[in-house]
Design a protein around this nucleic acid. Structure first.
Lengths: 209, 209
DNA sequence: ACCTGAACACCGTTCAAGT
DNA sequence: ACCTGAACACCGTTCAAGT
């Protein structure tokens, strides 16, 4: 019915600045998440810290959780990159021990690089809006791990591989959070323990089939 | 200055009813926590579901988090009971394998019996008001486990025992949550895996000292 | 296209008033 | 002692109006 008027793809600099502002919002939110926690993270606080009005915030994100969602997506995306990297190795020739070593080191990097990871992780499992994302991503990690476990010759039973992937995910997730929170001396020991446990889990599973 | 008038320890039935109402509030909160999650758990909703006004709610609890705090305390208290029970066994004669078996079974019971455990756990680590309680209790569990590990002859190094307690806590916590969420078939396998991992952790630590 | 800030609905908490 | 519900401060979200 109405005439379509907006066709001007002008002003890419405008787009660029908008993109930068989006980044600002995400960065500030991650910082504030670390400082005040998700409970005291108000849209007003984020807007004020970024230096815009609330209205502007809602121009970039439809609601408060969408900002956290975007942060979560970014972190989960980093994990996906790490997993793909792992899947591109010739795992078959590694042996379980080397695989565990490399896999855990690679995952650790993503945990270390994410600012405000702890409150983000908490928000992900606590807020319904983020739970779906969290769940779907868990499934994708589990599937990726299961594929690699298979290539390592640990099992051919899909159900078993999936269950093992879940155990791996939960265990490494819990203990990597310990590692990144630990003081340096404790961290290296905790990391060694985690690798040992990962190795134990896989070797046992392999022995059973 | 003012005369002290209130000495009447009359009306225990009043006290009893009040105590019952306190229980009502806690029970309803646990149920609602399971149904709607901590984000949509409003004081108005709790009050309405219990059948009282908001004001009454605040007569029993100083604020929203105090209700969750009380729920958390109750659950943590259950864990303490379990731990004390374990400490009263003659662990020295058990051997590591039997100890792990009994310890994990006992902890599982407390996880299974707590209604709304998952959102409660999430709230505990996400809400600053509950975080302190969570942290303190973690320390007490870690200390208890460390004492038992020592009696099992795993180590004499206090720092090492504490670190081991922490690993134990984080690993069992993460995987017990998997177990209680699993379907029955998966749950028994996950439980067996967890026991195996616990055993691996302790046997390795023992070997190192 | 992007920005503002007043306005609205809703939630946590308080408190004067009731029984 | 215990209860009520209106009132207040504050937060998430919207929207008419600006550039």
């Amino acid at each position: 019915m109405g005439t379509v008027r907006k066709l001007t793809p002008r002003t890419t600099p405008v787009q660029k600045r908008a993109q930068a502002r989006r980044e600002d919002i995400l960065r500030v939110t991650a910082e504030l998440l670390d400082d005040v926690g998700q409970d005291d993270l108000t849209t007003i606080l984020v807007a004020k810290t970024v230096g815009v009005s609330v209205g502007t915030l809602y121009h970039y994100f439809p609601n408060k959780y969408a900002i956290l969602y975007a942060l979560a997506e970014r972190w989960l995306g980093e994990m996906d990159i790490g997993l793909t990297e792992l899947e591109n190795y010739s795992i078959e020739n590694f042996g379980i021990k080397k695989f565990v070593d490399i896999a855990i080191d690679r995952m650790l990097v993503t945990y270390q690089n994410q600012e405000g990871l702890l409150p983000l992780v908490q928000a992900m499992s606590g807020v319904p809006e983020l739970k779906t994302l969290d769940y779907q991503h868990d499934q994708s990690i589990i599937a990726a791990m299961a594929r690699m476990f298979k290539r390592l010759g640990i099992s051919d039973n899909q159900a078993e591989l999936t269950r093992l992937g879940r155990q791996w995910l939960e265990m490494t997730h819990a203990l990597l959070l310990v590692v990144v929170q630990d003081k340096p001396e404790g961290a290296s020991k905790s990391l060694a323990d985690l690798k040992f446990l990962g190795l134990s889990l896989l070797e046992r599973a392999k022995g059973q089939f």
